[in-house]
Design a protein around this nucleic acid. Structure first.
Lengths: 186, 186
DNA sequence: CACAATTCAATTGCGCACAACTGAATGGCG
DNA sequence: CGCCATTCAGTTGTGCGCAATTGAATTGTG
């Protein structure tokens, strides 16, 4: 399916993310107030692009993780566990921005695959502690080449990826507080 | 700033996306080859951030679109139709990077909501043409403030959003060709 | 201590994403 | 013309993402 990023009118952009240049933004950023129509167009661009990028990542990970028997979200959970060793479901959810509705079945599948253990915390019987099995720890070595392969596949130099991450995190923070502010007014 | 080397999390980044400066990337981009451990960390950062951003967008859109009775993917389809008026399923999929497995049930729901019509093309009976109903066209006016609200909620100036889009599109293009190249070798 | 509010994981229900497959329509080629 | 590969939409099955709810454990308050 592979839609080349060249179907919409506003596409002939000089690939210059690290220094200014004549881009779509300039046309949209003149002195006059931004017209709704321009905003609609930029909105389209952003949400299309973000969606497509997110799923493109998922596609590459899916290929890379197939050998490991992991899905992309399962891999994210394993990354968190590899880093922290053992965490309650709640903490995993905070790291990944996921709730128990998503994590409970996912963790059950990881447990069925023999990669993690789930047990009620003795101190707090409400909480479930997720820990790695030996197989789960060993999987980390087999996953060793995944990050390098993926970062290479992005085609971007490391500094651009870092810049991308900064932009994404800022947007996420702003959107989260916006939605909280909206939800809080009653 | 001078992030001391070692295991410190790559978090305290000067928010400088539009011009170069000393960032995490520099530490990762020195003369020595990048260590697998650094790559693992950056890989985590990127995929966490992209995932979180994608879902944060979805969350805000969900709130904004609730009144219109649309989900976020349905809104994307409507955006395409508002722009092009009438398209076969295949073309919609190319615009949005989606296949019939996703679009068929989604379009069926839009049809049930009275927003679109689906009819077999007379020239090619395999193809299904999707067109807007009057209600579908009228919805565009009610959606008028969505883009402005959303772009404001991102907290980023328009030129940063445009830069973000460029980075995302480059990544998507590279990832797609990487996955195609990988899938083609056999 | 009793009792209400809160916290946590799990479940249910709906919609999307994607692989794999089905089946009909089309186009190419001998 | 007959046959086969291709193209298209749709279906099925699995897994995520999230809202809403449930039920048990814990905490706070009188």
């Amino acid at each position: 399916m592979a839609t080349p990023p060249g179907t919409a009118p506003l596409d002939a952009v000089p690939l210059a993310a690290a220094h200014p240049g004549p881009t779509d933004a300039d046309r949209l950023h003149g002195e006059q107030p931004l017209r709704d129509e321009d905003l609609l167009r930029l909105d389209q661009q952003i949400c299309f692009s973000l969606n497509a990028a997110s799923r493109a990542f998922g596609g590459v990970y899916r290929v890379l993780l197939k050998d490991l028997g992991l899905t992309y979200p399962q891999y994210l959970v394993m990354l968190v566990l590899w880093e922290h060793g053992e965490l309650p479901v709640k903490r995993i959810g905070e790291h990944l921005r996921l709730d128990s509705g998503t994590l409970s079945p996912l963790l059950k599948r990881l447990e069925a695959a023999g990669l993690v253990r789930r047990e009620r915390s003795p101190e707090d019987e409400r909480s479930v502690t997720v820990s790695l099995t030996d197989a789960g720890r060993e999987l980390r070595d087999r996953a060793g080449q995944v990050p390098r392969t993926l970062l290479t596949a992005t085609g971007l130099p490391v500094e651009d990826l870092a810049a991308l991450r900064v932009l994404l995190d800022r947007v996420t923070g702003a959107l989260d507080s916006a939605v909280l502010a909206d939800g809080a007014e009653d």
